[in-house]
Each structure stands twice: as C-alpha cells, then as structure tokens.
Amino acid sequence: MNIFRLTADMTHLMSVIVLLLKIHTIKSCAGISLKTQELYAIVFTCRYLDIFTDFISFYNTIMKVIFLWTSFSIVWYMRYHKIVRRSYDKDQDTFRHVFLMLPCLVLALLINERFTFKEVMWTFSFYLEAVAILPQLVLLQRTRNIDNLTGQYIFLLGAYRALYILNWIYRYVTEPNYVHWIPWMSGLVQTLLYGDFFYYYFLSWKNNVKLQLPA
C-alpha cells in the first residue's frame, strides 16, 4: 500500500461520507443522480464478487463491505426514504442505464483477461465505473444551482480516480510485473470525463463564487 493508493481510498470514502452527510443532515438528495448511484451499486456488486472467496487483507474486506453497504443505502434513501426521496429531481435525471450497461457488458465479453464469469464481471465493473458518472454530470449541467456538498461530492469522486492513476504509476515503477491494462485504461477514461467539471470547480474556488456549469 502506497500513499497515493491510501489517499485515493480515503478520498473515495470521504466522497461517500459527504453524500451521506447531505442525505442524513439536510434530508436532501437534490442534484444527485439516482441513475449514477444505482450504477455504482452495480459496479461494486460486480467487482467484489470475490469478497467471500479471496481474502486479501482486513483493510480490503472492510473497505469492500463499506462501499457495498453505502452504495446500496444511498440508493435506498433516494428511492424509499419518505423525506429524502421528495428532493430527488426525477424529471431531470433521465439517463437510461441500459445505454451505459449494455456496451460495457459487450466490451467486457470481448476484452477481458480471462473468459470466466467472475473475471468478466470484474472487467465489466471497471468499464461501467468509467462511465457511471455521466448521468450525474448531465444532471449537474441541467441543475442551475449546485450546492456545496454536491460539488464537493463530485470533486472527491473525481480526485479519487485521479489519485489511483498516481498509484498505478508508482506501482508500475516499484513492483515487478505490475501491468494491468483494464483498470488503467478505464480509469484514465473515467478521470478524463471529470476534466470539464474540475475546470469549473477550480474556477469557482479560485474566484470564490458559487459553482455553475455552463448550459
């Protein structure tokens, strides 16, 4: 475990905490895409199929449990919590899951490291994670008022993947035989998708004004 990887995981954890904070304290999920949250729940389910079969470390297992548990709770809150669900912008959040999931599944069936169920699901999870933010970014562009917690949530989520890239570079340099194209390429695509958002986030931070994306 290197510092980039640890910081990345902690940033990911913080993004989830920020979102849960918004849901728990403000009882609001305004500006948050349920589609993206559902895709994340699918991503972690498909990726962590090895949770009961391969023990890596206590840290690894605990983090997997946390990401699975929190992703499903967020979906539950947004769908079923009697107060939280009222703030969900259903009419604005119109992205269809199938348009993202189907191409990712086809790609995972075609390009994978081994053609087994677990391996294809693991690969699928990376392809899907790369694009899972798209419904959220579309919603963000449609929502004129982006509150601070939503902005911070998306910033932390983007930062988490950017830090993973530094981790991969570090591991490639320091560990022999560390080559892993599928997470690398999908991680790179994912980080690039945040590029535009990062630009406006830093602009609003620098000028100390409220974050707004151009229409």
Binding site: R5, S57, N60, Y164, H180
Partner: peptide, 10 residues
C-alpha cells in the same frame, strides 16, 4: 506475458 494478478485494489 500473462500475470496471475492479485486483485488487491478497490
């Protein structure tokens, strides 16, 4: 080269 990679990342 095929690596039997330990999936230790999240």
């Amino acid at each position: 080269v095929k690596h039997d990679f330990v999936k230790d990342e999240l």
